Simulated scan of single mutants.
Amino acid sequence: MCGEPSFLFEINAPVPSPNVLAPLLIKPEQMQEIRDAFEEAGVVSQSDRKALIESVIMGEVESLRELKSVDARRILQRIKGLHSRKPTSTGSAWDNREDDTWIDKL
């Protein structure tokens, strides 16, 4: 046993390093960015906002302050995806066509 480190009372035990990869909490700027994105996308109902956030983080949340910084980025991407969707078309396929046909070029 001579020459082996003694950890009986943790005198010479290696000190575990703190977890430097722990997720950071959301910043106030990110919270405001999420609120602004919701407004721009037209999502005004608190229940709709909460449902969208919970669908992204796959869990329940009571406040934006509970979110992690990485969650904020994913939430913003989802909100911006809602805003950039094409509006539902009304009318016939002919009315909703994007390109001109030979008839249009006459």
Rank of each mutant, 00 (worst) to 15 (best):
G3A: 00
E4M: 03
E4Y: 01
S6N: 14
S6F: 06
F7S: 06
F7H: 14
L8G: 04
A13T: 14
A13L: 10
P14D: 03
P16D: 01
P16V: 12
N19P: 02
V20P: 01
L21P: 07
A22M: 14
L24W: 10
L24I: 00
I26T: 08
K27L: 15
E33D: 15
I34A: 03
R35M: 09
D36M: 13
D36Q: 14
A37E: 09
A41G: 12
V43F: 05
V43H: 11
V43P: 01
V44T: 14
V44R: 14
S47I: 14
S47H: 13
A51D: 06
I53M: 08
I53V: 15
I53Y: 06
S55K: 15
G59D: 15
V61F: 08
E62S: 14
L64V: 07
L64Y: 14
E66F: 12
S69N: 14
V70G: 09
D71W: 02
A72N: 09
R74G: 08
I75N: 05
L76R: 00
L76G: 09
Q77Y: 08
Q77M: 13
Q77G: 05
R78N: 09
I79D: 04
K80L: 12
L82M: 11
S84R: 02
S84E: 13
R85N: 05
K86S: 05
T88Q: 13
S89K: 01
T90N: 08
A93T: 06
A93H: 02
A93P: 04
W94H: 12
D95G: 04
N96H: 10
R97I: 12
R97M: 12
E98V: 05
E98Q: 09
D104M: 05
L106A: 14
